[in-house]
Design a protein around this nucleic acid. Structure first.
Lengths: 333, 333
DNA sequence: TTGTATGCGTTATCAC
DNA sequence: GTGATAACGCATACAA
C-alpha cells in the first residue's frame, strides 16, 4: 500500500479511502491512485483489513448434513447472494455427535464471523446461548431460534395437506416415515410434520397406530429400512407419508424390490422426484437460502436490526406414486 | 491476550507459545496459562494470528457447478479432512461466464489462501498462470494442471469400458450424450470420455455418425433434451452412453415420456442410480475429495512439495437399463 | 480533501 | 524457558 501511495504521490490513508470507494476523495487523486494500484497489480490484504476494521466479512453457516440435497440447495442459494457482496461463507457441518461437541466446545466461530445462518437444527438452550454469545445476528432456516430471524414454510399446514391428500384418496391406514438424528433428537422439522400427521388423522376420526410411525436416520437408506419394516406388519399401511423425498425414494426402492404396492407421498420436490413419479409437497429451497442471506445482509449493515420472519408457500404436486391403483395400472407408471 | 498473561503472571509471548503448543514452555507455566485462558474463556483471534504469521489457514476450492451431485461429494470429502485440521474452506462457484470473469478479474484468492483445489475445470493458459501467480500449491481433481497435484480416474479407460459393454450386448448404433459449458468449452472430462467413445467405436470397425453425438449443458434437463433429439433421428440409436448419471437420468425421463426404449449407460454411480436401475461406471467421488485434501495438506506443510498424481479405480455396474430387451421384459424393470 | 499517528491482536526475533 | 519489542498491513480518529 505504501508503494501505491508513493507512486500516486499521496498518503496511505488516501489510498485506503480510494480503494474502499469512500466519498471524500477528489476525482483527480482517485484516478491517480487507481492507476497506481493497477500498475502495481495491488490488492488490499483482506486479513489486515479485517483486523484493522474489526469486521470479518464472513458469515458462518451451520447445517446438520451438508451433502443432503436440501442443505446443498440452501447453501447454494445463500452463497450466490453472499458472493455477490463479496462476503465469505464458512460452512460447519455438525450433524454427528463428535463434530457437534467439538463445535460447541471450541466455538470456532468466535471472532470469526459477522453473522450466523443455521439450517434446520435443533439446538439445546445451552447451545443457543453459546450461539448468542457470539454477539452477531442470527438467521434460521426451517426452525426457530429465539431472537433470530427466520425463513421457513408452514410445516404443519403443508404436512397436513399431504395427509389430507391420502385421506381424500380413500386411505384409512396411513403410515409415516419420520427421522431422528444421532442424538435421537427429533429435528424441529420432523417434529412439526409428525404433529401434523397425528392431528390430521385424529381430526378425521382415525386413531393413531403406533406401529405405523417409523423413525429412521435421514436419507434413502433410512427410507428403505422404514418401508421394509412397515411391510412386515400384519396389517401394513396402504399409503405412507415420508418426511422428505429422499426418504420416499428409499421407500419406493423397498416397494420395487419386494414387488408390493403402497401409495407414497414425499416432501420437498427433489429434482429427481418427477422422474420417479413421486407425489410430493413442493417448497422452493434454493430461494429460501437466497432470502435468508438477504436477511443476514440487512442484519449486518443495519445498525439496529429487528429479527424478521418470512413464510414461504408450498404446493402439493400430484404424481403417479399416489394414484389410485385402478388408474395407476393404466398410467405411465 | 494481555489479560491472560497478567492473570498467569507471564508475558504475552509465553501465552502465545503455550496456546500454540510450542515445545519450549515449562509444564508448570503451561498449566497456569491454560487455566488463566480457560477462566477468561479466551480464544486467539484467528485474524490477528493470520496477519502476524502470514499463513491464512484457508484453502480455496474452485468448482464449476457447486450444486451438482459430483461436486457436492468432492467438496464434502475435502471439507471433512480440512475441518479435522481446522483449516477453512473457501468455495468459489465459477461455472457461468460472469462469475468466472469476475473471479479471474479480481482474483479474490490473492493473499487469502495457503492452497488451491480445483475440480474438473478447463482453464485457459492465462487462467492457469493467474492461478499460479497466487504462489501456493495447487491440486486438481478430475483434470490436469501443469505443476499441480492431481487426483483422478482414467476417464478414457473407464468410458471405453462403458462403450465396450454396449458393443458386447450387440449394439452397433450407439449414441453419446456429452456436455459443454457456457463458453461452449468442453470440460476436460467431457473431452476424454468423448475421445474414448470415438476410439472404441472406431476400433470396433464402426464409423462415427456425427448426428449420434449430442452436446448439451450438464444436468438432467440437458440429458432429456439430448435423448429427445436422438429419438427424432430417422435411424435412432439402440443404445446411448451418457457422460454422467445426471444426464442419463434426463435421458431415462425422455424415454419414459415417449414410451420408447433405448439402452442407457451412465457414469458416476450417483446415489439414486440403483433405484433407477441405471447401468453405470462407478467411481468413488467423496474419497477423491478426501485424498485431494490430504495431498493439499502435505503440500502446505512440507517445505518443498513435488506434485503427486493419484489414479483411482472405476467399476462397471450392470443394471437393468442396459439389459437386452428380451431379458428386460421379464426382469424387475 | 488530504496527511499523521495510533491501534487492531497476534507472531517472531531477538536477547536474557 | 522467558520477556521485551518490532513487525504484520491496513483503518480511522484527528488534525491540517
Amino acid at each position: 500500500m505504501e508503494d501505491v501511495a508513493r507512486l500516486a504521490g499521496v498518503s496511505t490513508a488516501t489510498v485506503s479511502r480510494t480503494l474502499r470507494g469512500l466519498p471524500n476523495v477528489s476525482e483527480e487523486t482517485r484516478d491517480r491512485v487507481l492507476q497506481a494500484a493497477a500498475s502495481l497489480s495491488y490488492v488490499v490484504s483482506p486479513i489486515a483489513s479485517r483486523l484493522a476494521s474489526g469486521r470479518t466479512h464472513t458469515v458462518g453457516v451451520i447445517v446438520p448434513y451438508a451433502s443432503r440435497w436440501f442443505f446443498g440447495q440452501i447453501v447454494a442459494g445463500a452463497e450466490s447472494v453472499l458472493r455477490e457482496h463479496s462476503l465469505d461463507l464458512l460452512l460447519y457441518n455438525i450433524g454427528d455427535i463428535p463434530s457437534r461437541q467439538r463445535f460447541f466446545g471450541a466455538l470456532p466461530l468466535r471472532r470469526r464471523v459477522d453473522a450466523v445462518l443455521t439450517v434446520a437444527m435443533q439446538f439445546t438452550d445451552a447451545e443457543i446461548s453459546d450461539l448468542r454469545s457470539l454477539g452477531v445476528p442470527i438467521v434460521a432456516v426451517g426452525h426457530n431460534v429465539p431472537g433470530a430471524g427466520c425463513v421457513r414454510i408452514d410445516d404443519v399446514a403443508a404436512a397436513s395437506a399431504a395427509v389430507q391428500h391420502l385421506l381424500a384418496l380413500g386411505h384409512r391406514r396411513i403410515g409415516m416415515i419420520s427421522t431422528f438424528n444421532d442424538q435421537s433428537m427429533f429435528l424441529p422439522v420432523a417434529h412439526a410434520r409428525r404433529r401434523a400427521y397425528v392431528d390430521t388423522l385424529t381430526g378425521a376420526g382415525i386413531p393413531i397406530a403406533e406401529e405405523l410411525v417409523i423413525s429412521v436416520p435421514h436419507g434413502m437408506d433410512g427410507g428403505e429400512q422404514a418401508m421394509r419394516r412397515l411391510l412386515t406388519l400384519a396389517d401394513p399401511p396402504t399409503a405412507v407419508f415420508a418426511e422428505s423425498d429422499e426418504l420416499a425414494f428409499g421407500a419406493l426402492s423397498a416397494l420395487r424390490r419386494t414387488g408390493r404396492h403402497v401409495s407414497v407421498i414425499g416432501f420437498d420436490d427433489h429434482e429427481l422426484s418427477a422422474l420417479l413419479d413421486l407425489t410430493t409437497v413442493r417448497q422452493r429451497v434454493f430461494e429460501q437460502g437466497v432470502l435468508a442471506a438477504g436477511m443476514l445482509r440487512r442484519a449486518m449493515t443495519a445498525g439496529a436490526w429487528t429479527p424478521e420472519e418470512l413464510l414461504m408457500p408450498t404446493t402439493l404436486v400430484l404424481r403417479a406414486s399416489t394414484w389410485p391403483v385402478a388408474v395407476r395400472t393404466a398410467g405411465p407408471g
